[in-house]
Design a binder for these strands. Structure first.
Length: 337
DNA sequence: CATACCTTCCGCCACT
DNA sequence: GGAGTGGCGGAAGGTA
C-alpha cells in the first residue's frame, strides 16, 4: 500500500513550529509547486504542512497558517521531511511528541532537512550529531554550544551530509528545496525554477555578504573604522594582518584582538568574506573573465578563488555566475548542460 | 599527491 | 587590582 502511494506521488512534509518564519514554509512550497508547473505536470510533489497541535499556527511575523495535518494523525509515507525554523531558537526543547515524531519520520524517509533555525528544533532529536551542518549566521555559536558533536560549517548557505540537509538564512529554504529538485530531476529543471524565483524574489547571494555589512556597522564607532573603510575601498590589495595592523597603528596581536571584539569576526574570516562578496558581485554584474575578477577581489589567482568559493559557498565561480548572473551574456547562447 | 613552508588564531604572560 | 597592549609559541590549516 505504501509503495503504491510512494510511486504515485512524492510526499514532502514540512513541520511547522510555533513562531515560525513563514518564508521558510512558503519558499520551499513555492519551489516545489513551480517545479511541477515547469515540468508540465510530468512530476509530482505533494507538500503537506504538519504541526504539533490542530488549528492554525501563528508565524513570527503574525501570518497564520492552517496546517494540513498534525503529528498525531496516522503516518504518511513521507519521502522528504523538512523542519521549518522558528524566528528565534527557543530555550526550551520541542515536546517529546515532536522529537519522537521527527525521529520516526527521519528513520523511514529518504532524506530530511532543517531550514535555517529549524536546526534548533531538529537538534534535540540527535539527528545532527556527528553530521556537518549549518544554520543562520547569528545563531551558529549557539547551535555549536547546544550540540557540540555536530560539525558546524558557518557561512555555508547549504550543507548536505548523507540524508541530512541544513541551510543558513530563511531564504535559504528556497536553495534547499531547489537542490532537492535538482537531485530528483536534474539541474535544468532546478535552474528554470531558480531563474523564475530569482527574478520574482530579487534574491541575491548568501550569508557572508550580510555578515561583513553587519560587522562593519557594528564596528562603526571603533578605532577600526578607517581601516575597514580602506579595506572596502581597496578589495584587491594585500590584507595580511601585519599590514592592516600597521595601518591601524597597532601591533598585530592587538589588532586581531580588537578586530574580533569590534566586528565579531576574525580578520582572516572577514577578509575572505569580503573578497567573496566582491567577486560575487562582479560575477553577477559583469562578464569579466574569472582571472580578472579573482585579481580584482584580492585572490592570489583564479584557482584560489575557486577553492574558497567551493569551501564557503559550496559552488564554484563559474556555476555561481551561471545561476545568478544579471548581466547579459556576451554570447547569446552558452552550453546549458 | 606528498612534502615543506607560511599565515592565522589564540592562550598565556609581562608590562604600562 | 583592572584594563589595555604587545610579544611568544603551539596548533591548525592553507599554499607552493
Amino acid at each position: 500500500l505504501h509503495t503504491a502511494e510512494r510511486n504515485g506521488r512524492v510526499i514532502v512534509a514540512v513541520f511547522v513550529p510555533n513562531d515560525a518564519h513563514s518564508l521558510g514554509i512558503g519558499g520551499p512550497k513555492d519551489v516545489f509547486a513551480e517545479a511541477v508547473r515547469h515540468s508540465a505536470n510530468t512530476i509530482t510533489y505533494d507538500v503537506r504542512v504538519v504541526s504539533e497541535h490542530p488549528g492554525p499556527v501563528t508565524c513570527g511575523a503574525g501570518l497564520r497558517i492552517l496546517p494540513d495535518r498534525t503529528i498525531h494523525d496516522p503516518d504518511l509515507p513521507i519521502d522528504t521531511l523538512l523542519v521549518a525554523g522558528p524566528r528565534y531558537p527557543s530555550e526550551a526543547p520541542p515536546s517529546p511528541e515532536v522529537i519522537g515524531w521527527i525521529r520516526r519520520q527521519a528513520a523511514s524517509c529518504r532524506r530530511y532537512g532543517a531550514i535555517c533555525t529549524g536546526a534548533f528544533v531538529m537538534g534535540p532529536t540527535g539527528l545532527l550529531d556527528g553530521k556537518r551542518v549549518t544554520t543562520h549566521w547569528a545563531f551558529g555559536a549557539e547551535l555549536a554550544k547546544r550540540h557540540p558533536s555536530a560539525i558546524l560549517e558557518p557561512d555555508r548557505i547549504l550543507v548536505r551530509d548523507g540524508p541530512l540537509f541544513t541551510c543558513g538564512g530563511v531564504t535559504a529554504g528556497i536553495d534547499l528545496a531547489l537542490s532537492l529538485v535538482e537531485e530528483d530531476h536534474g539541474s535544468e529543471l532546478a535552474l528554470a525554477v531558480a531563474r523564475f524565483m530569482v527574478t520574482f524574489l530579487q534574491r541575491s547571494g548568501g550569508q557572508s555578504q550580510f555578515r561583513t555589512q553587519i560587522a562593519t556597522q557594528i564596528a562603526a564607532r571603533s578605532l577600526l573604522d578607517p581601516v575597514l573603510k580602506w579595506m572596502r575601498d581597496h578589495p584587491g590589495e594585500d590584507m595580511a594582518i601585519s599590514l592592516l595592523a600597521e595601518r591601524a597603528g597597532m601591533s598585530a596581536r592587538n589588532f586581531s584582538r580588537v578586530f574580533l571584539r569590534d566586528t565579531g569576526m576574525t580578520p582572516g574570516n572577514f577578509v575572505e568574506a569580503m573578497r567573496i562578496d566582491t567577486a560575487r558581485r562582479m560575477l553577477e554584474e559583469t562578464n569579466l573573465p574569472l582571472k580578472v575578477i579573482a585579481s580584482a577581489s584580492g585572490f592570489a589567482g583564479a584557482e584560489i578563488m575557486r577553492r574558497v568559493f567551493r569551501r564557503r559557498l559550496g559552488v564554484g565561480p563559474r556555476n555561481y555566475r551561471l545561476q545568478f548572473r544579471t548581466a547579459t551574456p556576451d554570447r547569446p547562447s552558452y552550453r546549458s548542460s
